[in-house]
Amino acid sequence: MAGLNKVVETYDQALAGLTDDMTLMVGGFGLCGIPENLIIKMQEMGVKGLTCISNNAGVDDFGLGLLLQKKQIARIYASYVGENALFEKQMLSGELDVILTPQGTLAEKIRAGGAGIPAFFTATGYGTPIAEGKETREIDGRHYVLEPSLTADFALVKAWKADTMGNLVYRNTAMNFNPMMATAGKITVVEVEEIVPAGTLDPNHIHTPGIYVNRVIKGSFEKRIEQRTTREA
């Protein structure tokens, strides 16, 4: 019996049960904090018809761009997709269904999904094309749009450290969408840089409690940088 031990040893185990036409959440902001090896594994598996929920779509040869290369994504929810030429091509040809979603609304849809809230009202997007066809309501003199929440078959998350029970700590801005996604997957798979024994992470410093996490795997990361901006020393 594994009990509460969430650690798996191989990427086959990490993504067992992930099949065609599933809905996936994929953490990251740009290329920062993406579960890069889980994505590479999905490209190898060749799963197709995927619906991906992710703030961005990677670049041509890294991140979700790898799944676009093999036309594995049928639909994507994202807030900004400007860095990817393959994406443009597939969107313009109609192969890829793109649901552009304001970044804060996307984050809240995922948070709400994980928290058991089916929808929420937000002022974001009222009076814009985003609100078309959606229920709106005036509350205390302000207009709001009803936004349904999001959940997924699999949430693919990148964290810095996990303990064997799946408690997670993120690092710097690699946190971004990962904590909410960890709560909103039927199966949450987390790729980390380090796995430590349960009891060694300070409970005061845990970002995501292990209850949300099903599988943890240790990876090694390229951590590609999109815009390397520096100043003189």
Binding site: A78, S79, Y80, V81, G82, E88, M91, L92, V98, L100, P102, Q103, G104, T105, T122, A123, T124, G125, Y126, T128, I130
Partner: peptide, 15 residues
């Protein structure tokens, strides 16, 4: 023209 997305702009102007 190409649509790149709104990022956080809609939330920023609403909030």
């Amino acid at each position: 023209k190409l649509i790149k997305g709104m990022g956080g702009a809609m939330d920023l102007v609403a909030g």
